[in-house]
Design a binder for these strands. Structure first.
Lengths: 344, 344
DNA sequence: CTGAAAGCGCTTACAG
DNA sequence: CTGAAAGCGCTTACAG
């Protein structure tokens, strides 16, 4: 192999081998159709010239497939590598990519103007959109590209499939495990919208919640409340900026200080841990003084004895990857309430 | 915008707008050069037809840049989302990508045959190779492509830059903080080679270690030993399969059971925690009964009181991304020994 | 301000 | 078993 950095083309290899470019192409793509002696000669010339094989971009253009899928993350990309749920999901996506020899293109979006261009500029065969707000402009762009699109968690939009658990039903069931026997139930919520403004509200209107996953979980909790004779309009809902155990500590403290809840449905295990941490700081017993529950059944949930909605984000990642590649895969993901000692 | 899924080309938009394709191209690439009325008309037609803008693959071929960098991970990709060090590194890479509007293409390799093809098939402008073994065939492939290549941690190969701390010097210094006063020093090591075979050895020859990062750290420890009058040929070295706290527990137990070490240099904070865990299980006091140190200064290191080599994997990720994009960036990464209460 | 020409580097039916 | 032809969808100097 000669010096790197050169820009050798297939045409050049063909010329030096005394064959046509298509024969060289066949050497790479259908070598069994090429005479052994020709194959040998072409390979020798390619090696001598340092030809690295067909240019992937040219090949993609010609074949009209890039061999990659794009994952649109509505967060600073560091998030993808921090959030435990996002990680398990991406690991599932990655597994399919590896099985199929497919590339995985991460496309961070930040809610700013460049987003749409970056999404459009990605050379991919299909898109996975990590759960976002209803009004995210990326959704229209990505569904207008004529490529398979799947949205994890929602929102559901025309031209895209959704892979998700039934957040509303799971919220209803989780509240039914957490609230009975409580006098001051409360919710510890993921962000309502992209502004990620933390806040403490009482009985907020779910229609004002921009993230459908969050909205549906809240609706499910309200469903239970109505069935159980609790007026959701009086339900304290603390909203954090990020799904992070440490960062959520202050808001968990605020929730206890303001409302002294004795049952908290948290919209994720990390948030539930933040509630457990705050309870511990106050010397409260779980579940006697306060019942706590979360979502995801994350690796620490068993050790923490947390009642939680178990779902496989890994498998959902796999499903999304398959759909983005044009396959069929289930959109309704299974979930079960796993009841442990953090609820009564 | 009309129905999605259609395959509208720029030529079609041009025809329907009554202009040439290059004018349409200018509408997207240099709109200020186009007459306002033309621009308006072309945009209207594009919207009406549902033309999603220039095809990224065709654009990449023509421009000879793809606007993406590839990150080659020599692991099942799930690793990238689990290992704390890899995550911080990738977060740094991702940050540069976001700043520059660049795509991030993750390319897992498994040591099997398809690796080389997948690496070559990625449409990227430059490559970042996550630390690998000297003999990894991917290195030759990737440096033969005429694109910028940077290897994190090593090995150093012609045609690629390396971004790394000085592992040997840091190993020497860390041992100097950990071994003094010890009578039975030991090493708790990352894998030696791609087979990831766990084992317990005594004074292994560093030249037999395939991962240069691991080899250099071991060489550094040996350097200290010689200076301190310890014969490295008698040094117990336990080698784990993965840099994972929980998974390493069994090997940490084996190390204690076999050698009762009173000072352990672990090649990473996760491994150091595994040693601390094993020490706790035995009721050993740290550092009195056993001194422990690691690498990386990971987020939990302070809480654990761990003496460790602090380095910014995040910044190293940034440097690698810049180099892969053709910029200059420092290859020698800073490090410092952070001494805490886990050593005497 | 707009267009004719050339070409990025390849692959794919189709002949022969 | 090999090649001539066409074309994937765009962009870029260059004219005018």
């Amino acid at each position: 192999m000669s010096s790197a950095g050169s820009r050798i083309t297939m045409a050049e290899v063909a010329r030096r081998s005394g064959v046509s470019p298509m024969t060289v192409s066949y050497c790479y793509n259908q070598p069994e159709r090429v005479a052994p002696s020709t194959l040998r000669r072409v390979r020798a010339v390619a090696a001598e010239l340092g030809y690295p094989g067909p240019d992937p971009t040219a090949r993609s253009l010609r074949r009209r497939r890039t061999g990659a899928i794009g994952v649109v993350l509505g967060e600073h990309l560091t998030y993808a590598f921090e959030d435990p749920g996002a990680r398990r999901f991406l690991a599932g996506v990655a597994e399919v990519c590896r099985e199929r020899g497919i590339g995985l293109n991460l496309i961070p979006t930040t809610g700013e103007d460049g987003d749409v261009d970056r999404v459009r500029a990605a050379s991919v065969d299909g898109y996975i959109v990590w759960t976002t707000v209803d009004s995210d402009p990326v959704l229209a762009v990505v569904t207008g590209l004529g490529k398979p699109v799947v949205v994890h968690g929602g929102p559901a939009v025309p031209g895209a499939q959704v892979v998700s658990i039934d957040n509303r039903a799971s919220g209803r069931e989780l509240a039914a495990h957490t609230f009975p026997g409580a006098r001051r139930p409360a919710v510890f919520s993921q962000p309502f919208g992209r502004d990620r403004r933390p806040r403490l509200e009482i009985g907020p209107d779910p229609e004002g919640v921009e993230f459908p996953v969050t909205r549906d979980r809240l609706l499910g909790v309200y469903d239970h409340c109505r069935e159980a004779g609790i007026d959701p309009r009086g339900l304290p809902v603390a909203v954090v900026a990020r799904n992070d155990r440490v960062e959520a500590a202050a808001m968990a403290d605020a929730l206890f200080d303001s409302f002294e809840p004795d049952a908290v449905v948290a919209m994720g295990d990390q948030l539930a841990y933040a509630v457990l941490d705050a309870a511990r700081r106050r010397g409260l017993r779980v579940p006697d003084d306060v019942a706590v529950a979360g979502w995801d059944d994350d690796p620490d949930a068993e050790r923490e004895g947390l009642t939680t909605i178990a779902q496989s984000l890994f498998d959902q990642g796999r499903s999304c990857a398959l759909i983005a590649l044009g396959d069929r895969a289930p959109g309704d993901a299974p979930w079960t309430a796993t009841v442990r000692r953090s609820t009564r």
